[in-house]
Write a protein that binds this DNA or RNA. Structure first.
Lengths: 344, 344
DNA sequence: CTGAAAGCGCTAACAG
DNA sequence: CTGTTAGCGCTTTCAG
């Protein structure tokens, strides 16, 4: 059997193929395909026609190597199933859309070692910038970020020292603010219900800020309950039941996120517990989901869309003031009292 | 002012830098860093030490160009905020984890033109494979996929003709199955509530299968209501209210997804409507969220985790039987009757 | 407006 | 076990 005439029928098309098919030099083909430099209308047409006919897809690997330019922005987040990160992504995409930059997401599952790997992998593709959640990273991660040579934006949190730029809210302050609102409403026997948070630094900071305010009034948490994994709504119910049983005299339940808060709310309503009279409830995040609940859970908006937008502006060098890097932007979360804190 | 002595202090390290710092040839450095070929323990140590000390991160662009190998798998999905795709992603990641392949996600927002762009961008990075949702694509997209020269797996749906491989469920059959269960339970005045679905082909197929069964019994939908955008839970409430008002004698509400179904369920409970006596309810997807609701909504599990896993197996050439491509795997969604269909 | 030459940083394929 | 030689497919730069 003779071998097929062509070396590898599965090989993808190259600029050369388009060049031969159109009778135009590779260089000019490249120019046409990138809309760079002046090319006569006739040759442009011929090239485009040939490229289209062949179904040519440029090889960005080769292009990036030659031009030392990569139109990718790495986005590193802890989780996709969190409701909060998709919204951040939306903000990022919105802004990057008309910059020629493309977001590439990596997920760490809240694991520092995993984060290290993801950062390493991302950087090995030499992206134009990096956006990543949080200010806490392993030493090795910090070193890589500092060396990256591209804009790095740490998002969500500003309580700490960023490598380069940061966009986020102060979770400590957010915790304080919520505590103050709760105290002002007259609640005194307050329990905290949240994730087991070895690596959820932001939740930890909120709790710290929260307890700070309590301490100032000579109070401390009446109870606390932690969970990990599983359906957040369901967990919220279970934890609420547990706390209410263990510490029957609590008058407020502060949840580390809206999903478990929603579960708690549904549980209380099921049980006929008077909310916010007998117990008040509050969560954190301002997730859209809450809009459909029988009662609006008190929460705090984490400015996710703006965080996404601003971080993308920084990475793409589109800040209005023309600042280059090292920016720290603090956003102010708004308290949404909803219907689960009684009015003072 | 004299220019700085080094060409560009911001340039990233190369193999050559490590080579010089360790006194080992570039080639051997490359071998060490990739764990390829035999290298003496001494030189290995020396290289690793130098690389670590310098903070060298290999340039995958150059590596990929030279080796004609890219350890990336493109995953193209309509949306991230859908609850369903994160789970698919989990399945994919699980399997890819120990293959050296990395998923890269692209989002289309249910827009065919957007999908075309994303496919084009993805392919321009010459990934090792592509996983994408759905069987319906623009002609140009189909052409690119067919030309890609790498495994392409279309997921979620199998009612149609895939370019290469497919893993999913038959949504038409799923719609039929649900209709049969509802009919068997004795409901007859059935309404459909769903997304405005110009591009949600799978929802459309479910509805088609559903209506097929109704028609077989000489019935047709008593009412239908569509929405787009907004908080699904809230929309579910509003739509339910609208249908119940417009067509007071309906006895069943079939929702195109669990989120709006959950909203409908909460509304009915709020209104004191007897579920499933006065009206029955059902959704689609089997989202984890449902576990925390006051009553379990009837739904159908879409096998998302398995879809993710299997598609990743195909792309990475890990199918147990050693099949190469062109596989069509149909999974069977299970009906979860929950508490919102009365027993027959 | 168009082309030719010279790499980008790495790895395959051989020689030692 | 280690080094040398060619490129990978594109873009930059500099001549026409």
């Amino acid at each position: 059997m003779a071998k097929p005439p062509h070396p590898d029928p599965r090989r993808t098309l190259t600029l050369r193929d388009v060049s031969e098919a159109s009778g135009v030099s590779e260089m000019t083909v490249s120019r046409v395909l990138r809309n760079r430099g002046d090319v006569s209308e006739t040759t442009r047409e011929r090239v485009l026609e040939a490229a289209r006919r062949l179904g040519y897809v440029p090889n960005k690997i080769a292009g990036a190597l030659a031009s030392q330019r990569v139109n990718l922005v790495g986005v590193i987040i802890p989780s996709l199933s969190n409701m909060v990160f998709p919204e951040v992504m939306t903000g990022i995409s919105d802004v990057l859309e008309d910059t020629g930059l493309q977001p590439v997401v990596g997920v760490t599952n809240y694991l520092p070692e995993r984060e290290e790997t993801v950062i390493y992998e991302m950087l090995s593709w030499r992206p134009s910038g990096l956006i990543l959640a949080g200010l806490e990273h392993s030493e090795a991660s910090q070193a890589m970020l500092a060396q990256a040579g591209v804009p790095v934006v740490e998002i969500m949190d500003i309580d700490g020292t960023p490598v380069d730029s940061a966009v986020g809210i102060s979770h400590r302050r957010a915790g304080r603010k919520m505590a103050e609102a709760i105290m002002a409403a007259g609640y005194r026997r307050i329990a905290f219900l949240g994730t087991q948070m070895p690596n959820d630094h932001r939740a930890k900071k909120r709790l710290a800020g929260f307890e700070e305010v309590l301490a100032r009034e000579g109070l401390q948490l009446a109870d606390r309950e932690f969970y990990s994994g599983g359906s957040a709504l369901l967990k919220g119910r279970e934890m609420t039941a547990a706390v209410l049983k263990r510490t029957p005299d609590v008058d407020f339940l502060y949840y580390s996120n809206d999903m478990i808060g929603a579960g708690g709310l549904l549980y209380c309503l099921d049980q006929g517990i008077d909310v916010p009279g007998r117990v008040g409830l509050a969560g954190f995040n301002g997730v859209e989901l809450l809009d459909g609940l029988p009662r609006r859970l008190a929460t705090m908006d984490a400015c996710r869309l703006d965080i996404g937008r601003l971080s993308a502006e920084i990475v793409s060098g589109k800040r209005p003031n023309g600042i280059i890097g090292g920016e720290i932007i603090e956003l102010s979360p708004t308290l949404q009292p909803g219907d689960t804190i009684r009015s003072a």
